[in-house]
């Protein structure tokens, strides 16, 4: 299965599963109207979902609910001394240990996945995922920085440094306009070992900041600020592989300042 085929399939699935914002649903309706192949796939997938919903939903037997309520009642009420353990102590201890591990893992997972450690990081990941889902990775497709850079002219109040670093492993694919933190921003798209990297460029609020690694929902992010611009790189690659990017972007920014 090719990458675009998977993107289209998952975009259609997201619409069927009620995961698309309304404006994208309209886009998708328009796409389906003029793409019989996608429409045929979507119809077959709808039929499959209807079939799957006919699989039996297994409700908990009444006897199980009774048994659980009994157990809970026994645990909630202190037992008389003569019968201190309704369930074997060994079993109880191992259940307790397992539950403790489980809850630790649950808490860790929540912490790791929790949005809003940095709200912007979460938004960056959402934009990245949406760019891959919606077949809207690039507005301007080119590996030529002299094509991509002027394309942003007049569309944004900033001039993102654009360079093709294919020789260093970061090949320029193109760029697009995106929306982040309530502002239109530049998104530069790079490819690194078959992985797509979105590099968002927005006006920086403060002084330069050294690159910082972040993780949100399993994606690797690198954030830094330089020369009045705030950079967010995001991809599904090993976080350390993003480390080369800031210096390369810097090298593209340098000549432009002397222009």
């Amino acid at each position: 299965m090719t990458g675009t085929e998977r993107d289209l399939e998952q975009w259609l699935a997201a619409a069927r599963d009620g995961e698309l914002p309304p404006e994208e649903e309209a886009l998708l309706e328009a796409h389906l109207a003029q793409d019989p192949r996608a429409a045929a796939h979507d119809a077959a997938a709808r039929a499959l979902s209807a079939t799957l919903k006919q699989a039996r939903y297994r409700r908990a037997p009444a006897a199980l609910a009774h048994r659980i309520r009994d157990e809970i009642a026994q645990q909630a009420t202190p037992r008389p001394v003569l019968r201190p353990f309704a369930i074997p102590r060994r079993w109880a201890m191992s259940a307790l240990a397992a539950a403790a591990c489980l809850l630790l893992a649950w808490n860790l997972a929540l912490q790791f996945e929790r949005p809003g450690m940095l709200p912007l990081a979460d938004e960056v990941v959402e934009n990245h995922v949406r760019s891959l889902m919606a077949n809207h990775l690039t507005d301007v497709v080119s590996s030529d920085q002299h094509t991509v850079k002027p394309w942003f002219n007049g569309k944004l109040d900033l001039a993102p440094p654009v360079g093709d670093f294919g020789a260093q492993g970061f090949a320029l694919i193109g760029g697009r306009l995106d929306y982040l933190a309530g502002h239109p921003v530049a998104a530069l798209v790079y490819r690194h070992n078959e992985h797509v990297i979105n590099l968002f460029v927005l006006p920086a609020a403060g002084a330069d900041r050294r690159p910082t690694h972040l993780t949100a929902r399993g994606y690797a992010l690198l954030n830094w600020a330089k020369g009045g611009l705030d950079y967010w790189a995001v991809s599904d690659i090993n976080p350390l592989e993003l480390d080369g990017l800031p210096a390369l972007v810097d090298s593209a920014a340098a000549p432009q300042q002397s222009e």
């Binding site: 085929e5 289209l8 192949r37 796939h41 077959a44 997938a45 499959l48």
Partner: peptide, 17 residues
């Protein structure tokens, strides 16, 4: 879903135009 569709004898056609 694709595996189920194939197992049920009605594979999903490719969406790629």
């Amino acid at each position: 879903r694709a595996l189920l569709a194939r197992a049920l004898g009605r594979p999903l056609p490719s969406p790629q135009r």
